[in-house]
């Protein structure tokens, strides 16, 4: 074996490697571009999950936009007021109070509430179920499938499937919107944390159909809408919705609902 050849290759290759390393090291020093000091601070202040809930590519993207003045200091939905205040201090601005939001699943039908058309044995992912007959084993085509695509999407361990339906942990939820995007049935939305009453059903079938499918499904009877004094409840496609902007949290609709589709949060 030609030992010299081996040594020479190692030496040359190692030499090139070391040279390149030193060369690049020096080059970083020589060609250092002074970045805005605030940029570094803002990046450090942000949570660093890179969840994309702000609409920018990662925390650094948002930091760039904040420093440039393109995004408000409270753009980060995850950090909330605490982070907004720190960033405002860095940027030398007053932080505006940002409204805290949480995710809400518009379905409360547990395994016992809703009837099943058939048993499903397959890949446990809600998005896969768009390929199976009737969009899932449950007879209700609008409700939570319970296979937890939202659970996998959540980076904060704030949503869980309990008894066949996704439930949001309101204290842990950071309103990043990941689960909203993950749900193939579009059941999840971001609502203000202060909103007390919401309709936990998305079924758009007529009353009798819904009644056969689910014990707690909204049948579109409009009792809630008729009894609401501030007209915050509307019924469309046999499904009620409560507008949190108008709602005064009086709870009349909650008491009137015959199917208990409205939940108190």
């Amino acid at each position: 074996m030609d030992f010299n050849g081996v040594m020479l290759s190692v030496a040359i290759l190692g030499g090139v490697g070391v040279f390149v390393g030193i060369f690049l090291g020096i080059a970083t020093k020589v060609f250092k571009v002074d970045v805005d000091k605030r940029l570094e601070d803002v990046v450090n202040a942000l949570p660093g999950n890179n969840c994309g809930g702000c609409g920018y590519p990662g925390c650094e993207g948002l930091a760039n936009a904040i420093v440039k003045g393109e995004a408000p200091v409270n753009q980060c939905p995850v950090g909330g007021d605490k982070v907004a205040r720190v960033i405002a201090e860095i940027m030398g601005e007053e932080a505006k109070e940002s409204e805290r939001k949480v995710a809400f699943v518009a379905c409360k039908a547990t395994c016992d509430d809703v009837t099943k058309d058939y048993n499903y044995y397959g890949i446990e992912d809600c998005r896969m179920l768009s390929f199976v007959p009737n969009g899932g084993p449950k007879s209700c085509n609008y409700g939570c499938l319970g296979f937890g695509s939202c659970v996998k999407a959540c980076e904060f361990d704030a949503i869980h499937v309990i008894d066949g339906v996704a439930v949001v942990d309101r204290e842990k939820c950071k309103a990043c919107g990941k689960c909203v995007a993950a749900c193939p049935k579009n059941l999840i939305s971001l609502i203000p944390y202060d909103a007390k009453y919401q309709v936990a059903c998305s079924n758009k079938e007529k009353g009798p159909v819904t009644m056969a499918q689910c014990k707690t499904g909204c049948i579109g009877c409009s009792l809630c809408a008729r009894n609401c004094e501030v007209k915050a409840v509307t019924v469309q496609d046999f499904n009620a919705t409560i507008d949190p902007e108008l709602c005064v949290n009086c709870g009349t609709c909650f008491e009137k609902c015959p199917k208990k589709s409205i939940v108190k949060l």
């Binding site: 490697g17 390149v20 060369f23 690049l24 080059a27 060609f31």
Partner: peptide, 15 residues
């Protein structure tokens, strides 16, 4: 090795 380093260097230089 050289190409990777070169691209890095060019990037710094241009920046």
């Amino acid at each position: 090795l050289v190409i990777a380093a070169l691209v890095q260097f060019v990037e710094m230089f241009l920046k």
